[in-house]
């Protein structure tokens, strides 16, 4: 198992370096030097060249890339063009709130999707299964911003139960205390994730139900309940670990939309604002952080799976 984890980690490191290369290339392509942004559009070519020289933007590309890696490793993502702060500082301020929103949504989504998918598989081809499949299929086709709009239209404007703006508290603790205003943003994320997860769970559970060991468990005289809880649940839930890892990009994207619709102060809203300002250091730094999160998420998922699934442990 140690060799497996080593191998898997080595691959992850290679992928992270690849991600940095890709984003460095993108950065260089769309935004080779911040000189004009810092010095203003009227700066003389000499001033630009001098700026580039002092900040190293005239060095060979590989040298700039190494510098970029070095800075990234030290969590130095450069300065925001418009917000007068370092990107790292901005991330630090906003990360907690985003993590709270996404984390809570992810946990709730998994807690709903796993039993729902298993129940659908066990009662397959029943009215319940058809309804659940139909609904999740339908919701799966919704753009998340439209989910947000409809939630607001129904629960804020029509029923007047919940606010249409998320909590504006600055601390994570403040957000937790203002839970009511977080119901809609979290729900929007949960709805789209459940739609994807439960379909996957259903097919995973169906695959496992067709296996002989389920038949053997029944042949032992176990009740359907025991077959379900002792044998089916664990085996068919294992793949969801991988799926959660793989769905992180979607979660980050969903987070971006939800934060901008509900005006929630997090990394997504920061990114959205930066889009309007063409604030490339923030945009590419967040893309990089997102990608690294995804790689780490997948790595953690794979390692978790080796711990949870004895079949992989010995490889």
């Amino acid at each position: 198992m140690i060799t497996y984890i080593l191998r898997r980690t080595a691959t992850a490191v290679i992928v992270v370096i690849g991600v940095m290369l890709a984003i460095f290339a993108a950065l260089h392509l769309v935004y080779p030097s911040p000189a004009r942004a810092v010095l203003g559009l009227k700066a003389t070519p000499q001033a630009v060249a001098a700026f580039n020289h002092t900040h190293g933007y005239d060095r060979p590309l590989w040298h700039q890339f190494l510098t970029y890696i070095n800075q990234t490793v030290h969590l130095n993502f450069g300065e925001s063009l418009k917000q007068n702060q370092s990107v790292g500082q901005l991330f630090k301020e906003n990360a907690g709130r985003s993590a709270l929103l996404s984390g809570v949504a992810l946990v709730i989504a998994v807690l709903i999707a796993v039993p729902l998918g298993i129940a659908q598989a066990v009662k397959r081809n029943s009215i319940f299964d058809y309804t659940a499949t139909g609904v999740s299929f339908f919701l799966y086709s919704w753009p998340i911003f439209f989910v947000c709009l409809v939630l607001i239209a129904v629960f804020s404007l029509k029923l007047n139960w919940l606010p249409f703006e998320a909590s504006q508290a600055t601390s994570v603790f403040g957000v937790v205390r203002d839970a009511k205003s977080m119901i809609l943003p979290v729900s929007a994320l949960v709805i789209v994730s459940v739609a994807a997860f439960s379909r996957y769970m259903r097919s995973s559970a169906l695959d496992n139900l067709a296996q002989d060991y389920i038949k053997v468990a029944r042949a032992k005289g176990l009740s359907e309940r025991s077959v379900l809880f002792r044998h089916l649940t664990r085996n068919s839930s294992l793949p969801i670990i991988t799926l959660v890892g793989l769905s992180l990009p979607d979660l980050l994207a969903g987070n971006l939309i939800v934060e901008s619709v509900f005006n929630y102060q997090g990394l997504g809203l920061l990114f959205f604002t930066a889009l309007g300002n063409e604030d490339y250091p923030i945009l590419l730094a967040y893309t990089l952080v997102g990608a690294i999160l995804v790689v780490i998420g997948n790595l953690v998922a794979d390692i978790a799976l080796t711990l949870a699934d004895p079949r992989i442990r010995l490889i």
């Binding site: 060991y213 053997v216 085996n235 949870a308």
Partner: peptide, 8 residues
Amino acid sequence: LTALNPTM
């Protein structure tokens, strides 16, 4: 192989 529960 399939008749035994792989995770038990």
